[in-house]
């Protein structure tokens, strides 16, 4: 039995981003493991520790994304696989999902696929839900806790966030889940783990290895250009006053004048 975690490297969340006149964005060169994926990788390793399952970490990306895989290996995943094919350059969510679902099927005997809540670079989670559909499995998104999982009986019960609060949902396995930061405390690699991960051979699965033709990986949407956020108008107006009551009243006046309320 098998747990698979899908992880990726994304630009450092601390980085400032600039956009040039031709619509290219510059976020520096530093890549980190997608913040949500740290929780997803940790959850796979915790499940491996508590159950008799193999944990595999998969990324879809060029060679620079192997770092997310090494992070996974260093904290305890058993194996890592990188998916890449030139047909995936500029891929959209659906192409991503098609490739990932094919890789999960190729592994076989997978009970659970874990994603971090979203990818911080493309700010999207579309590929997660689409992977579930391409696999034909149920989807449990925004999971805050796995309350129970029984790999032999093929059942899972989770608590998940909703827009209105939270839900406890039970489901059959296999399933795809996405996790939010409540789920665990991320594990960080040890020195020994990092050394072990550095020596690991990471296979690359291309379209042929996945049994897909390039047409199946063609995208239906395209990124055209980046654009700076519209500037916020005007400088801040600092509200002064002799007393805090005066300041408060002056601010309320301004907000009512501006018809904000």
């Amino acid at each position: 039995m098998h747990v698979v975690v899908i992880a990726k490297n994304t630009p450092d969340t601390e980085a400032t981003v600039s956009v040039d006149a031709s619509g290219n964005a510059d976020w520096g060169d530093k890549l980190v493991v997608n913040p949500w994926d740290e929780y997803a990788i940790t959850e796979a390793v915790l499940l491996k520790g508590a159950h008799n399952v193999t944990a595999t970490v998969i990324t879809l990306g060029t060679e620079e994304h192997a770092e997310a895989l090494k992070h996974g290996l260093a904290i305890g995943c058993d194996q890592a696989i990188r998916i890449w094919d030139d047909a995936l350059a500029g891929h959209d969510g659906l192409a991503y999902a098609t490739a990932v679902a094919a890789a999960v099927n190729k592994l076989g005997d997978v009970s659970l696929v874990i994603f971090g809540k979203e990818l911080s670079d493309i700010a999207s989670d579309q590929h997660i839900f689409q992977t579930a559909r391409k696999l034909g499995w149920n989807m449990l998104g925004f999971v805050a806790q796995i309350e129970a999982i029984d790999f032999a009986a093929k059942t899972i019960r989770v608590s998940r966030l909703t827009e209105q609060g939270s839900q406890v949902v039970s489901s059959a396995l296999p399933a795809v889940i996405s996790v939010v930061k409540d789920i665990n405390e991320p594990k960080y690699p040890t020195f020994i783990g990092i050394r072990k991960a550095a020596r690991a051979e990471i296979p690359v699965w291309d379209a042929a290895a996945l049994g897909l033709d390039a047409a199946a990986l063609s995208s239906k949407t395209a990124h055209i250009r980046y654009q700076a956020l519209p500037a916020r108008e005007g400088a801040v107006e600092i509200i002064d006053g002799a007393t805090v009551q005066e300041q408060a009243e002056a601010l309320v006046d301004k907000l009512l004048e501006d018809k904000v309320l």
Binding site: I224, Y226, L229
Partner: peptide, 15 residues
């Protein structure tokens, strides 16, 4: 909004 909401990405349907 992408890249942590720091920039906008203009995207279009091609299919």
């Amino acid at each position: 909004p992408v890249l942590g909401g720091k920039v906008l990405s203009v995207e279009a349907v091609t299919a």
